[in-house]
Design a protein around this nucleic acid. Structure first.
Lengths: 246, 246
DNA sequence: GGATTATTGTGTATAAATTACACTTTAAAT
DNA sequence: ATTTAAAGTGTAATTTATACACAATAATCC
């Protein structure tokens, strides 16, 4: 058994046979996928968590995850988990990072690939029947099972970065939204206040908000116009950031 | 065996036992790390590749990788591979992404975690005795073994992005460098031409280049001043990009 | 139906950052 | 002493980001 370990140390070019032997031997790990599923409700950024099923982490919340099947790709596994838990498919989903510290899982070596996904809470609201599932305010999260707090923190940071660079945010909103809702979303995700006039100016200048000639209803004040995000227009617009700044 | 698969479908809360059973069962994969090692030489961005040891990919070049040991973290494995191949430790290294398509390895299911690292070619030049190792111009790479071309492409794109946002580039240069060398580096990585005066203005304004009061030698023209990157000053400077642009 | 309330919608002036661009200086090589 | 090749430097024009205030509107309350 140890011979492969020695060979793996790079002193010797490995043969096909040696590799076959290696991959069939003890050098295998359990691989899981954990989904950090973000939603936006009541002007707050939320994350969907489930109660841990491990005694060690009893009462703690954890990300939605599962082992990857032997004949299943990573993205496929992530979509499967999302579909199982929310009923949704066809949503924004992106790999974040892989976490493989030796002691991260109490039962055995489990390496996990984290995925981030953004969903419109309205669309699936009624599908969560499982009361062990819960939407948490992102800023109320303190402790979690496993190393999930670390995974969550990194995913959230990455979301904050991505949302500045790409029009991801729209995935969290209904198809029709007012500019105020859009601004609330950005303020919630980035945890900052933005100037309303400059915000509107910026998004109108981007020129992929389509004015639907409709207005909000059931608001106790002057209703705002409704817009939708025109993905086709965005794809065509080819202006990209080329600066250097750090 | 199938019972775990069914349980994994989310219909039922899993017990600790079920998980233990799962992780000890067939749901395991071989896990490898592949390093995309970048260098900079003769004003060109290079990547360090090795000839594939698989018959199927005979003659093709591949990234430097190895299986992750059962008691080894991912970052640790990446540093081990780099150390074995270049003799270097204490270098920039960052996880890029994990690739886990079912058929990506011909021998069996192997999921691989890609790492990107940046090294100063001068520092280890003499340590590559292995003639199956070679520095390739990044723009000359067409075919590679496995899915390594895809991994390389994604890593290179990520490098282009990162190098605009963080002062990574200095890892590729000697400790002392001229501004022309720095500009050549950026032009090579980003594959663009930059205006010399504006480039200098920008980097001087950043204020973490330390003037060493030395000049280049052995250049057949007026020598440039030498600088070093002052990491301490950079850490203290806390100006960060807060805009929204896409 | 008139007053109140809360939020929408809009423009401009200032500051900061980015871009475009050309000549003089310097050291080495001939 | 001349040639060569790159270093070093500044300014004006443009673009982008920021700060900031008031009139218009629909719903609610009396």
């Amino acid at each position: 058994m140890q011979s492969e370990v020695l060979m793996a140390s790079g002193q010797k070019i490995k043969t096909f046979k040696a590799i076959q032997s290696e991959v069939q031997s003890i050098n295998k790990v359990a691989l899981s996928v954990d989904c950090v599923i973000f939603g936006f409700d009541e002007n707050k950024l939320k994350v969907l968590l489930i109660r841990s099923d491990l005694k060690k982490y009893q009462g703690k919340w954890s990300l939605l995850g599962d082992l990857v099947m032997p004949d299943e790709g990573l993205d496929t596994a992530a979509y499967r988990i999302l579909k199982q838990r929310t009923g949704l498919s066809d949503v924004y989903m992106e790999q974040v990072q892989t976490f493989g510290d030796v002691g991260r899982h109490p039962a055995s070596r489990v390496v996990t690939v984290a995925y981030c996904s953004l969903i419109n809470i309205q669309h699936h609201k009624l599908k969560i029947l499982d009361n062990e599932l819960h939407w948490h305010d992102v800023d109320s999260i303190t402790e979690m099972a496993f190393d999930h707090k670390k995974i969550f923190d990194i995913s959230y940071c990455q979301l904050q970065k991505r949302v500045r660079e790409h029009p991801l945010g729209f995935s969290l909103l209904p198809g029709k939204f007012s500019l105020r809702e859009l601004q609330n979303l950005y303020e919630a995700i980035l945890s900052i206040k933005l100037d309303r006039r400059n915000f509107r100016k910026k998004f109108f200048a981007m020129d992929f908000l389509e004015d639907l000639d409709e207005i909000e209803t059931e608001v106790p004040h002057r209703p705002g116009k409704l817009y939708r995000f025109d993905y086709e227009k965005y794809k065509k617009s080819t202006k990209k950031w080329t600066g250097i700044a750090f």
